[in-house]
Amino acid sequence: MGGIRGVKHYMQRTAIQSSPTMIAAITSQYIPGAPKRIIDLHPFRLRMSELNVGDTWKTDSRTVSIEDIEHFAEFTGDKFYAHMDEEAAKASPIFEGRVAHGYLILSFAAGLFVDPDPGPVLANTGLENLRFLTPLYPGDSMRVELSVRSKSLKSEETGVVRWAVEIFNQKDELVATYDLLTENVP
């Protein structure tokens, strides 16, 4: 009882110390920092059972321009000073100038990794553990690595894939990271 805690009464908790690669092998699960298995076929074309934990899709990159930022601000109404006011952004303790909206980065990320045609990926059902780590300035570029973090079944007919999403800039610095949840055909 007590859900999964009750299951743990019958298991042993052990601390493992090693490299990310070893820990990924021991747990058969995705570990940040472990080598990724780069795949050639877009993962949105695969059923959940055909995806392996650790499979990673690398996208092309795109540049984010000041016009993109202004277009996004006008379109959504989000005109926060950090995106629209160069002087105020510079004066802040965080930014060196105007930066791209976090939500713009997320939207562009989806534009980079989504494969549009109908297929085994049915819907985007959530996003967790989102962190913005490095500001993205006008003129910077961004690319995405989409890795299968875990798979589970919601029912016999629907699966849930948890993807680790990592967004990098042109210097390979991590701009943002989050878990994406999708509903998939098992």
């Binding site: 743990k8 019958y10 298991m11 042993q12 908790r13 052990t14 601390a15 493992i16 110390q17 090693s18 490299s19 990310p20 820990i23 021991i26 747990t27 570990i31 920092g33």
Partner: peptide, 13 residues
């Protein structure tokens, strides 16, 4: 450098 990390795991008794 991130080459040595720790992770807790559960395995069945």
């Amino acid at each position: 450098e991130g080459t040595f990390v720790g992770q807790h795991i559960y395995t069945p008794l």
